[in-house]
Amino acid sequence: EFTQISGYVNAFGSQRGSVLTVKVENDEGWTLVEEDFDRADYGSDPEFVAEVSSYLKRNGGIKDLTKVL
């Protein structure tokens, strides 16, 4: 089950073990991109978060400006 990723309007994530599946949706709710990120592939949590965040930004993730990150 996908849940909204904090700080984004149209990005959602689903966690299974160490694998986080993220997706970005358009205004109609269609999935634009979907990608798996395995936490085990990264040396640290900040590196993992930075990679996921960068992916979302590159692929149309819209920041939720009503929330302070």
Rank of each mutant, 00 (worst) to 15 (best):
R16W: 07
N26R: 06
T3N: 08
Q15H: 08
G13T: 08
V19R: 04
L56H: 02
V19N: 01
G29H: 05
E35A: 14
R16T: 08
L56T: 00
D27K: 13
S53E: 14
K63H: 10
L32I: 12
P46T: 13
Y8D: 03
K57V: 10
N59M: 08
E1W: 12
A11R: 00
V33A: 13
F48I: 01
N59R: 05
S6V: 10
G60Q: 02
E28G: 08
S44F: 02
D38G: 02
T66E: 15
G61C: 15
F2W: 14
K23M: 06
A11E: 03
L20R: 00
D64Q: 06
N26H: 08
V9R: 07
L65E: 15
E25L: 15
E25G: 05
E34P: 02
K63S: 10
K67S: 13
G43S: 12
E1D: 12
S14Q: 11
L69D: 15
K57H: 11
G61D: 01
V19K: 05
E35N: 11
G60C: 08
S44A: 03
T3V: 12
I62A: 04
T66L: 14
T21E: 01
D45T: 10
V19P: 00
L65F: 15
T21L: 04
Y8L: 05
V52W: 09
A40I: 07
V9H: 08
E51Q: 10
T3R: 14
F2H: 05
T66S: 11
N59W: 14
V9N: 06
E1L: 11
T31Y: 05
E51C: 13
Q4E: 06
F48N: 01
L69T: 14
A50E: 10
L20E: 00
I5T: 03
K63A: 11
A40D: 09
E34Y: 10
T66H: 12
S53H: 14
L65M: 12
Y42Q: 01
A40L: 11
K63P: 12
V49H: 13
N26W: 06
L20T: 04
A40R: 11
G13S: 12
I62C: 08
R39S: 03
Q15P: 05
Q4Y: 08
R16Y: 07
Q4R: 11
Y42A: 01
F12K: 06
Q4C: 15
F12I: 04
F12V: 06
A11G: 03
A50H: 10
V49R: 11
L20Q: 00
S54H: 09
T3L: 12
L56Y: 00
G29S: 03
D36G: 05
G60N: 04
I5H: 06
S53N: 13
S18C: 12
R16H: 09
E1V: 12
T3C: 15
E28H: 11
E47N: 02
W30E: 13
D45P: 03
E28Y: 11
L56A: 00
I62V: 08
T21S: 07
S14T: 09
T31D: 02
R16N: 11
F2E: 03
Y8N: 06
T3A: 09
G60T: 03
G7T: 04
E47A: 07
T3G: 06
D45L: 12
Q15V: 13
D64T: 08
D45M: 09
T31N: 05
P46N: 15
I5V: 05
K23E: 01
N10Q: 04
L32Q: 06
Y55Q: 01
F12W: 12
D36Y: 10
G43H: 11
K57P: 02
R39F: 04
D36K: 12
K67C: 15
F2A: 05
D45S: 06
Y42F: 10
D38K: 02
L69N: 14
R16D: 05
G29Q: 04
V68P: 15
G43V: 08
L20F: 09
E47G: 02
Y42T: 01
T21V: 07
N26T: 12
G17R: 01
G43P: 09
Y8A: 06
G17A: 03
K23P: 01
D36S: 15
Y8R: 06
L56G: 00
V33R: 06
N10R: 08
F37M: 00
N26P: 02
L32R: 04
F37Y: 01
V22W: 01
A50S: 09
D64K: 04
Y42W: 06
E28F: 10
R39N: 02
E34H: 09
G17E: 04
Y8P: 06
G60L: 04
V33P: 03
L69P: 15
V24P: 00
R58E: 09
D36W: 09
T31R: 04
E34A: 10
V68G: 12
V24S: 00
N10D: 01
E25H: 10
I62T: 05
P46K: 13
D27C: 15
R58T: 10
E51H: 12
F12C: 09
L56C: 06
V9T: 11
E34G: 03
E25W: 10
V33G: 08
E51F: 10
A50G: 07
A11P: 01
G17I: 03
R58D: 10
P46F: 13
V33N: 09
V24Q: 00
N26A: 07
R16C: 14
V52H: 00
L56N: 02
T66Y: 12
A50K: 11
K57R: 09
Y8H: 07
R16Q: 08
E47W: 03
G17P: 01
S14N: 07
S14C: 15
W30K: 15
N26D: 11
V9D: 04
R39L: 04
S18I: 02
G61Y: 04
R16G: 03
S54G: 09
G17D: 04
V49F: 14
Y55R: 01
V22N: 00
N10W: 05
V19Y: 01
E35M: 14
L32W: 07
A11N: 01
G7D: 04
K67R: 06
K63C: 15
K57S: 12
T31L: 10
K23L: 06
G61R: 02
E51G: 07
Y8C: 09
L20K: 01
V24R: 00
D64M: 07
W30R: 13
S18F: 06
Y55W: 15
G29I: 02
Q15A: 08
S6E: 13
S6L: 10
V49T: 10
I62W: 05
L20V: 06
G60K: 03
E25A: 12
G7Q: 05
V9G: 04
K57Y: 10
F48R: 00
D41T: 07
Y8E: 04
T31I: 13
W30C: 15
A40H: 09
V19Q: 03
L65D: 14
G29P: 03
D45V: 08
F2Q: 04
S54V: 07
K23F: 05
D36A: 11
Q4P: 12
T3W: 12
E34L: 11
V52P: 01
R39W: 05
E47I: 06
P46E: 14
L32K: 05
D36L: 09
Q4D: 04
G29A: 06
D36F: 09
R39T: 03
P46S: 14
E34T: 13
T21D: 01
P46W: 14
V52I: 12
D36I: 10
V24C: 06
E47R: 02
K67T: 14
S6F: 09
E25V: 15
S18K: 04
V24W: 03
N59G: 03
G13N: 04
I5N: 04
F2K: 06
D64E: 10
L32H: 06
I62D: 03
F2N: 04
F48G: 00
E28C: 14
N59L: 07
K57N: 14
T66R: 06
D38C: 08
G43R: 09
Y8F: 10
T31A: 09
K23H: 06
D27Q: 11
D41L: 11
T21N: 03
S14G: 01
D27A: 14
R16V: 09
W30M: 14
Q4H: 08
F12R: 03
N59A: 07
F37V: 00
A50P: 00
R16K: 11
L69C: 15
N59V: 10
Y55G: 02
P46V: 14
S6A: 12
S18V: 04
S54N: 13
I62Y: 08
V68M: 08
G61L: 11
L32E: 06
W30I: 14
F2S: 05
S53F: 11
S6Q: 11
G61P: 04
Q15I: 13
L32F: 08
K67F: 15
E35P: 01
G17F: 04
V52S: 02
Q15C: 15
L69Y: 10
P46C: 15
N26V: 07
S18G: 07
Y42C: 04
V52A: 00
D38R: 03
F48S: 00
D41M: 08
F48W: 07
S54L: 11
S18Y: 04
L32T: 08
V24F: 05
E28P: 05
L32M: 13
E47S: 04
F48D: 01
F2G: 05
T31F: 06
Q4G: 07
Q15L: 14
V24A: 00
Q15T: 11
T66K: 09
K23T: 07
Q15M: 14
V19S: 02
F12H: 04
L20Y: 09
R58P: 03
G13W: 15
E47D: 07
W30G: 10
D41Q: 09
V19A: 01
D27E: 11
T21I: 07
S14I: 13
K67I: 15
S6I: 10
N26C: 10
E35D: 07
R58F: 08
D27F: 10
Y55N: 01
V9L: 11
V9C: 13
T3D: 05
L69M: 09
A11H: 00
R16I: 08
G61H: 02
V19F: 02
S53L: 12
F48C: 05
R39C: 07
Y42E: 00
